[in-house]
Design a binder for these strands. Structure first.
Lengths: 140, 140
DNA sequence: ATAGTGCTTTACGTTTACGTCAACGTCAAG
DNA sequence: CTTGACGTTGACGTAAACGTAAAGCACTAT
């Protein structure tokens, strides 16, 4: 019940693995969320017996997943995207397919870029009008 | 059953109103979607008898809604944002509240801006690697 | 008068993205 | 050896964002 400095090790020896509780806290999501992403095939942590063991690779993926979510992509689409990064690009057909996918993604992202920029600009314009109104109130 | 050039008028006289079918098609959504937004209070078209009549104001709002959606905002949040634009900002307290909200929104949008830019950058880097791989295949 | 076209409400169904138990395993500490 | 602390697998619940009939009104054309 007192101060316990030995809470979050367990991977002190390996130095590169984490438990589900640790990654969940690190990314500020619940363990349920992490398991859900695994159910959908977005991450596949190592199993040591029955326990899940997360490596840096899994953390990288989790970061990509959460960023994708912030951008409003559905999880299924996020899966196809990050799978793309790990896809075997040995044969020419595969590489050309991957490059095609990249182009599609980029088109989508550039639309979102415009959306965000427009929204920020409109917000700025709106703020200016509000500050004008405020100025008039001060002036009187 | 033959060619019918008189399909989409009905507002020819007023020149500034549309039916639900027309706005739905214009924004490439279903009428169900449009009505759903109305149920949530995101738009409130005029009623002429029982029929909905959409004005430019409603189209503007629809545009904002759909852009908000592309950026991954939930509809409820979108409602509070676009309501903000139409809010009565007469009193100082109101104006200060609005300016606060604007700041919150901007912080959020700037995070998304970074997310999109990072994603595009990573995509570019990934494409470069793929093109390298492709070049090596050509070279052999 | 009737049929067709478009709009309306009501209401249940579906998908996505998890939340929330329940019930059980496991490992170290007391 | 029992008690936690943490982990595991189901399995059902839920909120958001619509989809999808079903059934009826209104106007127009034949």
């Amino acid at each position: 019940m007192t101060s316990d400095t030995s809470t979050t090790h367990r991977s002190s020896r390996t130095g590169e693995t984490w438990t589900i509780a640790q990654v969940a806290e690190a990314f500020d999501v619940t363990h349920r969320t992490v398991r859900h992403y695994e159910d959908l095939g977005l991450i596949s942590p190592e199993r040591r017996g029955t326990q899940r063991v997360y490596h840096r690779r899994d953390r990288t993926r989790l970061g990509l997943i959460l960023r994708g979510k912030r951008l409003g992509f559905p999880l299924e689409e996020i899966r196809t995207i990050i799978d793309l990064f790990d896809a075997p690009r040995g044969r020419r057909t595969q590489l050309e397919y991957v490059l095609d996918q990249i182009d599609e993604r980029r088109t989508d992202l550039e639309q979102r870029l415009r959306d965000v920029q427009d929204a920020i600009a409109e917000l700025g314009e709106f703020e200016r009008r509000c500050r004008d109104d405020l100025g008039r109130l001060d002036h009187v």
